[in-house]
Design a protein around this nucleic acid. Sequence first.
DNA 1: AAATGAATTTGACCTGGATCAACGGAGTGT
DNA 2: ACACTCCGTTGATCCAGGTCAAATTCATTT
Lengths: 264, 264
Amino acid sequence: MHRPLPIRPASAHDHGPCSSCDARAQSVCSAIEDRDLARLAEVAVVREFGKGETFIEEGDPARDFFNITRGTVKIFKLLHDGRQQVTGFAGIGHFLGLAVSDTYAFSAEAIEPVQLCRFSRPKLREVLHDFPALEQRLLETACNELVAAQEQMLLLGRKTARERVATFLVARCRNTLPCTQPAEHVALPMTRSEIADYLGLTIETVSRTLSRFKLDRRIATPSNNEVIILDRAWLDSTAAGHTPASAISGVSRHSDRPAATIRS
Amino acid sequence: MHRPLPIRPASAHDHGPCSSCDARAQSVCSAIEDRDLARLAEVAVVREFGKGETFIEEGDPARDFFNITRGTVKIFKLLHDGRQQVTGFAGIGHFLGLAVSDTYAFSAEAIEPVQLCRFSRPKLREVLHDFPALEQRLLETACNELVAAQEQMLLLGRKTARERVATFLVARCRNTLPCTQPAEHVALPMTRSEIADYLGLTIETVSRTLSRFKLDRRIATPSNNEVIILDRAWLDSTAAGHTPASAISGVSRHSDRPAATIRS
DNA sequence: AAATGAATTTGACCTGGATCAACGGAGTGT
DNA sequence: ACACTCCGTTGATCCAGGTCAAATTCATTT
């Protein structure tokens, strides 16, 4: 459970483990200069978690902040009877635990093997005091998450199942950083159940909707956890709420308006 | 449209209009010392908007930040066909426009006469530079909004209509600051339509659900825009997702599980 | 390769909340 | 007082997506 920091080849001008961190470029840590990185490394503790391990529990005292350096975690909230809402998936470089409250407002679970840096709150506060640029980056990060959260509220409150799944696929496609795969290739490290809990749907509806997209040649699914986008334009348009619920197959006979409040 | 700052009696040690601002105590501005308030007042422009006026339009270049000093505004996003999601209601002291992007990610409309302070982005950035405490307050604010947004995602993704309305009422009750009214008195400055767009429901469902609460003596409605909470414990419990969908009247005959994904 | 168990898909059916429609009440202007 | 409009309520009906149930596929282990 408590593994040592992996040994890495250190360069001549090494400033500690943070300078060779895979996640640094995509993370708030990039706000700190090379020569100051040692300061950050001092207060960071590297931890690893296996698939399914919950390392933040809603309601627990919020002692630490986390920065993900490998793998993916799901952020979620639970109702007492087990209903679950996934509020986001956090990947490499993602910062977790931003909250003023003294208890966590959400839980976090590794959905694949995860490595992360842990900072104790008081120690991070010290670092923040010394590096105002880091605080600015945190504010930026928080603002971006707020925008994403509003987008997700629109999805959960007003989009149809088809629109939700399309939105999810194109967002995943966009989030996938310029890496080895072409942009049309989307990796899905999460299960159908986790997708359902993210989109406010059931497993069955997610599955059926993906099957329908496949039938209509909008996507292909080489395996259970990857999707290839075949008709990006249609998915984009559907995600945005156009596309009046008719597809290649299936003749629409009814009034054909998606469920909504249309006014003014 | 462009009204002058209202004249106020100035104290002997007045530091400009901000020092007598009604909203200051509840706002990020409280992070600034009395003697520095003049600096803030310099860059602030007071504006007023009537009911129904939209003063932030999604997609427009994000030139300004706003701080509400009187009234209530709704923050919302639109789909192309008119479907609307209200992501929040902002009252006195609320700070608007936090976003890194150069365009607004949401629209804002006055739902009652509103007075606000407008800060241009570059000018506010200067002030932020001079008062790091203000930046910290902004980060705190953003974190709080993030927590609220996650709570709302849980509501939109996983709660039943009855649970949504109950959550809305008790949240309104909690948000209402210790003021003239007893806590059980909830003011609703927004229309049923705006409540519906906030809760991801239709006008009809909101109306029916409130009627049902009233019938069951959970609430009373002296007028259309105020509610008196009669059974706070039941509403709290319902909002949290307990209360298995049965009420005073109405015998439940079926399996009685609220719609959800229940696992692990 | 067979066995076990979890994840996913598919089908049949049901229901909570949406849609459609009609009506009632509170303002507001003339 | 009347006409008009906006808002909210209530009733009747419909359907997208949930629920229940039964395969089928996938990943692992033996």
